[in-house]
Design a protein around this nucleic acid. Structure first.
Lengths: 198, 198, 198, 198
DNA sequence: TATGAATGAGGTTTCATTCAT
DNA sequence: AATGAATGAAACCTCATTCAT
């Protein structure tokens, strides 16, 4: 993501400003919600409002960019864990870490949802990246018998969102995370369990 | 909720309008999010904007009223199930029903959170009602061995919120609900499981 | 002023309400300025808003009525003093008393001026009454040599308004009143002064 | 007043617009009273409503700015006369000129009073400037025996306000001004008078 | 006649976006 | 490319006035 939509490479200073704006936006939206003003983002970034709009022609595109950045970071974390020694630990560790980061992401996910933009469409090719990375973690954990076999990446992603929400808003304690983990593990008395024992 | 804050009973027509506004607000906020305009609510209700503000002097108070109405409805449903024959079925049935209704409630819960109002405080005495009713369902299900014994109403409520969110936003299928249910059941290898098998 | 504009006599209870509203309006406008809401007047009067509008079909007419009532009271006070023993004392005493009451009257005078209504027209036949009563006091004081001879009721009224304003807003002390009095007395080196020394 | 509250100098075009808005506000408030809408001010200034609020973030701050501008102008006029040849003429000339300008100033003074803002506080350091300049004029006139010795700047200011009000509202003729002048001159039978005759 | 609920124009203020500097 | 002033639509809310009860 080092070029504009027009495909032309950005000058060094422009690139630096783009990064400053993005970082500021992440902070501001996390702190004040997505209804924070674009001007506030500019102020925090230390640039003029015009500069924000030069890089992100609408507020929605700014929110989208923040979301993409977050998802990219998540995907990277997932890929880092893809070759960990203990697949189960890798999977659940990733899950827990995402939930812990939820406060910020929540704001942005909400925003896009509210703006009437489907998150999956907005995130373009980043969404699949995350899903693919999660899929890898999931498969390894399932093969190791640490996670039930009858679910796929979509279910994991949805559950991740829900538990993150609970953690951010409902003041959910670790107990909620524990319940989710128990639900994700192979369940007793089923074919899953048999597979887990193998 | 048939009186104003001043304690005087409302005239029949006023009461009817209040209900119309509340219903419209529920629809509008569910459909467009809580940033929908008050004027849109008035339009949908078929009343003048002044009427909305007569009944709910600020937008926040309108959002609050919508939330309270929703919670009241939930509490009533929970109470209805408190004496059902099968406590486990009652508990899980309630959970599933709430999640199914989630689209609307989500909008409002978000709104209050964003508005800086603590949902638990805003809902005044309605929140406790819901929690109490859920507590009753939970206890009965735990005593019957249908639900794990190491959680309380707070965890259930938080999980309810999270799964509802997943259902409303992340397009969570029934699989997510199934995972949550499995996590809520007595877990293998513990005293709970023994109780469950009895 | 015991009839409506339609000429029909008011029922006893209607008359009582009219008086209550008028008194409340005086209080409210004096305390909060003329931008106070009509609803506030109704509340203070202990009647419904509809009742206020039944008696005074517009807010302007209510302000006008308050002003008329005030002027009537002033005229009565002036008439009471018309036969006082000392004409000079009567004149200056009246002047001082009016200024002391100014706070309330100010609000209303301003209001009418702001509302684009010419005070002289609005007050209809009451204005002349006041002016006539002031004229009588003035003439007697002039004949007694206590007030300069080269001014008429119009100048006295204007000065009265100005000094009242100063008293109400500019925090004018008694000194301002003293200056006005000195300016109103027969001035040195003229026929007036001779008369004053007689 | 060539900078914003943030201390940064304004761009040339912004400065021009600020002046246009201020001038328009003076006109509009003078003509229609302080309850005139901000939109009317924008229309008269030929700018968008947003521009008005960029320069004056609330209506009250706009009213305040108009008042400050007026007081500054008055202070400048007073200072110009501070070294005039005839101190008495300077003092009374100033007084007369202020009264002649009264229509506009009245509107604004009223406004601030109504808005619950103490004019003296709101005007910051401009109020004292005016009073100081008036004080200089007064002292010189008193030393020259043209004005009575037993009053100070506060009394002059209050009287100024009152007579201005009379001139603007009550249709006061020059006679009222004459009365005030006579009251301000050294009064017969006192040390003042002796000084005046010298 | 009295009441107060309903109305909607209009007021202040915010903010995403555009454009001159 | 960067800036920030200008714009105006739209939001929330008030209040004089009308009208059904």
């Amino acid at each position: 993501m080092t070029t504009t939509s027009s495909g032309k490479p950005l000058r060094a200073d422009a690139l630096r400003n783009r990064a400053k704006v993005l970082a500021a936006a992440e902070d501001v939206f996390a702190a004040q919600g997505t209804s924070a003003s674009t001007e506030e983002v500019a102020r925090r970034a230390g640039v003029g409002i015009g500069t924000v709009f030069r890089h992100f022609p609408t507020k929605e595109s700014l929110l989208e960019a923040v979301l993409v950045a977050l998802l990219e970071r998540l995907a990277a974390q997932a890929r880092d864990l893809a070759s960990a020694a203990d697949p189960g630990e890798a999977f659940f560790g990733f899950f827990a870490r995402v939930v812990a980061q939820a406060a910020t992401k929540q704001a942005v996910t909400d925003a896009l949802a509210e703006a009437g933009v489907d998150a999956r469409e907005a995130t373009g090719r980043t969404g699949p990246d995350v899903k693919a990375a999660i899929g890898t973690l999931l498969e390894r954990a399932q093969r190791a018998g640490a996670v039930r076999a009858d679910i796929g990446p979509s279910e994991v992603t949805a559950l991740l969102a829900g538990i993150s929400y609970a953690a951010g808003r409902a003041g959910g304690s670790d107990d909620v995370l524990r319940i989710a983990f128990d639900g994700l593990r192979p369940q007793g008395g089923t074919a899953d369990q048999a597979a887990a024992r193998r």
